[in-house]
Amino acid sequence: MHVFSKEKHSETAAIQIKGLHKTFGDYKALNNLSLEVKRGEIYGFLGLNGAGKTTTIKTLLGMLKPTAGELYMLDEKVHAGNYKLWNKVGYLEEATFYPDLTTIENLDIARRMQKVSDKESINQVINKLGLEPYKNKKAKHLSLGNKQRLGLAKAIIHNPEILILDEPINGLDPAGVAEIRNMLYDLAKNNDVTIFISSHLLEELSKVATRIGIIHNGCLIKEIEMDNLEQSLQKSLVIDGHDTNAIKTVLKDHSYEFEETKDGPLKLSDNRAVESPEQLAELLVTSNQPPTLLRVITEDLEGYFLRTIGKVRGNQ
C-alpha cells in the first residue's frame, strides 16, 4: 500500500502553475506563465533580475494574489488562507532572522511556528548544517555563510516535502555554494524533497538542477533537462591564418558561412565545419592557406542563457 501510494505521488506534480498572470498597475510582471515541477525534482528557475522570478515565488507562496491563473502545491490550491499547506513547504529567500536571538533561539521559534513538537529537530538541523560551534551565538554576529545556513536550517527544520529557495547562494563563497549544493542534492535524492530554486546564474543552477526553466519578461521561454543541456550548447569552429582575406575567399568559394570576430579569427557555426574540422583544414592546406588556429569551441552556459533570452554579451 505504501509503495502504491508513493507511485501515485510520483505521478502528480508537486508544483503546478497554470496560466499565471500578475500585473502591478500597467506593468505586466508575469504573462501566462505555466510550469510543473515533478516530485523529487530540482527545478532551477533562471532569469535576469526583474524577469519575474521573485514575483512567481511570492505568488506561489500566497504573498501575492495572481491577476489570473491558478497555483497548486501537492494538489492543494495556493491562497493566503490555506496556511496549513506551509506545513509541507520550506522557504528561504535571503537569510532572515531575529538579530538579538541566538542560532538555537531562532531555530526554536521556527520549530514552534512550524508546529514541530520534537525539540530534537533543532539539534538535528544544527548538526546537518554544521552550525554546532555557533549555536549559542547571536544571529547578528554570524558570518554571511552561517547566516545563510541558519536560513536554510529554518527552512528545513520541519522536513518539508517542497523546498522553495529564492537566490539562496547570493553572497556565499565557493565552498559555501558547494556545501549548499551537496545538501540540496542529498535532500532531493535521499529524502524525495522537491526543490524549486531560483537564480540568475545558470552556471550555479546547472550544477544542482535536474531541469531548468528560463523566465524572461514574465514569460517562461524555455525548459530544458540538464541531461540535454550539453547538446543544446552551440558549437563553433574558430580558424585563423596568415592571410585572413585569402581564407575568406576559400570559405566563400566552398559555401562555408562565417562571421568575423572582434579579435580577428573567423567563426563558423554551420554543422559541416563543426562536425568535420579536418576537412576544412585539408581544404585550407590544399588552397595554400594553412591555418595557424583551428579549434572547436563550445558555448559557455552564460552564452547559452543570453542567446536564449535574445541578448548578446556586453549589453549589445
Binding site: 507562496l61 506551509w86 522557504y91 532572522f97 531575529y98 511556528m113 508546529k115 529554518k154
Partner: peptide, 15 residues
C-alpha cells in the same frame, strides 16, 4: 525592517 515578515507568512499558522 528585519525582513522576517516573509518568513512569518509561510508558516502553518493562521495570520
Amino acid at each position: 525592517t528585519d525582513n522576517t515578515i516573509q518568513d512569518l507568512l509561510v508558516k502553518p499558522v493562521s495570520r
